[in-house]
Amino acid sequence: MKPFNSLREAAEYAVTLSDGWHFANTSETYEKESLLPLAQTSDEEDPIDEDNFYLVSSGGSIGLCEDAEDIDWLFIANAEKDTVLPDVYSASTDNCFCSQCGHRLAPGANFCDECGAKLN
């Protein structure tokens, strides 16, 4: 999972991974064209606290991580609608995903299978 300081930044990354989302607790749906303006407006009207950040899953779902621990999933990517997403964020979880494209990494990998990025 990749962390971001604003919903707009998270949405800009998420649109590279998915082409549609639904709001976590409703049937409201969003496409690329509607997600980005919504994210911008949200950042302007209700910025997150300093200790919080947004996360984007490898499939493009967007969650709010409060107090660097609990994840409240806001937008679920269409491809992940039946996926169980984590409820808690752990910094060690970052090592399981490529920092360039967010793809899940194989244990002990030196390069990302998806984008070819060299891993640290």
Rank of each mutant, 00 (worst) to 15 (best):
E31S: 06
E28S: 08
E33R: 09
P47R: 03
D51E: 15
S58V: 11
G59D: 03
V56C: 12
T26I: 04
Q40W: 00
V56F: 05
Y30M: 03
T41L: 07
L55S: 04
T29Q: 00
P47S: 10
D51I: 13
E33I: 02
G59H: 02
L38K: 07
D46S: 13
L38Q: 08
L35V: 10
L36C: 10
N52P: 03
S34Q: 04
D46R: 11
L55M: 08
G59K: 04
F53S: 12
Y54G: 11
I48F: 07
N52E: 11
E45L: 15
P47C: 04
Q40C: 00
E44H: 13
T26E: 02
V56Q: 08
T26L: 02
A39D: 07
A39K: 05
S27R: 08
V56K: 12
L35M: 13
L35E: 12
V56W: 05
D49M: 13
G59Q: 05
L38S: 07
Y54E: 11
K32Y: 08
T29L: 00
E44C: 11
K32D: 13
T26N: 01
D43F: 04
S34L: 01
K32L: 08
Y54V: 09
D49K: 13
S57Y: 08
I48L: 09
S57I: 12
N52Q: 10
D49Q: 14
D51A: 14
S34H: 01
K32C: 10
L36R: 05
D46E: 14
S58E: 15
P47G: 07
D51R: 15
S58H: 13
D46A: 10
L36T: 08
S27N: 12
T41R: 02
E45G: 15
